[in-house]
Amino acid sequence: MNIIEIKNLTKLYGNSIGIENVNLEVKEGEIFGFIGPNGAGKSTTIRLLMSLIHPTSGEAKLFGKDAIEYGPEVRKDIGYLPSEIFYYDKMKVKDLLNYSASFYDKDCSKKIKELSDIMELDLNRRIEDLSYGNKKKVGIVQGLLHEPKLIILDEPTGGLDPLMQQKFFNIIRDENKKGATIFFSSHILSEVQELCNRVAIIKDGSIIEVQDIKTLRENNYKKISILGNNLNKDAFNLNGITKLVQDKDELKFFYKGDINAMIKTISSIEMRDINIEEPTLEEVFMHYYE
């Protein structure tokens, strides 16, 4: 069964395009990544799903029901973590969580306790006194306290330190094991790679490609730069090298292919320094961007 089904969804803001003809299907139990640079239309798509804004044309279905018409009903089973968290400043964390819980027809107190223990959240503080990262923690607890069947995350890790980020990912994995479907939007490739089964790549409002994460891994580019005195560009004639540039005593290129072959080539030359790193998202998807 498709938990999310988006058909030809378009949102225009006046003359500018929010998203255009987006088609997506997310199956039950998936952890689905939604990746693209800032301003590509990720948040617009998610806000359409949450019926915060209305589509210009096309439709979005959640659990097989129209996202706008059955909004309140489908939202019972959705947990949403927006990229920026804003709550009523004067409220205490526990009051806010209880207020949120009061909209669901079930007892959420156990789950609130469990989640806030994991996230080390102080329930007695006021929202206005919380740091950005702590607000994010409140957002995580609030988004998951009703044990939703679909969890929608919009750039969820900003403001979390690496330790909390891992705890958060573990929670998400647990919820997924218990049957929840995850829709994970991000502009950071590594976190999507860590968590997701499939990804959709969005750019300038359109979906460019939907890929298995395995395929994406195989497409794993390395960004290599070598420093040395007598570097010879021609030594690097391996398959899979792209964008080879020589700048005085520095060689830079991207490599996709057998890493052993690359290491052999590198070891045969004299150099001062080497740097092998993960390319940024833009660089990985550069063939889409050209």
Binding site: S51, R75, K76, E84, F86
Partner: peptide
């Protein structure tokens, strides 16, 4: 104004209510 719309209006309750 307080940007709480993204919290309140995603709760399982209609705008009418």
């Amino acid at each position: 104004r307080d940007k709480t719309a993204e919290y309140l209006f995603v709760l399982p309750i209609s705008r009418r209510r």
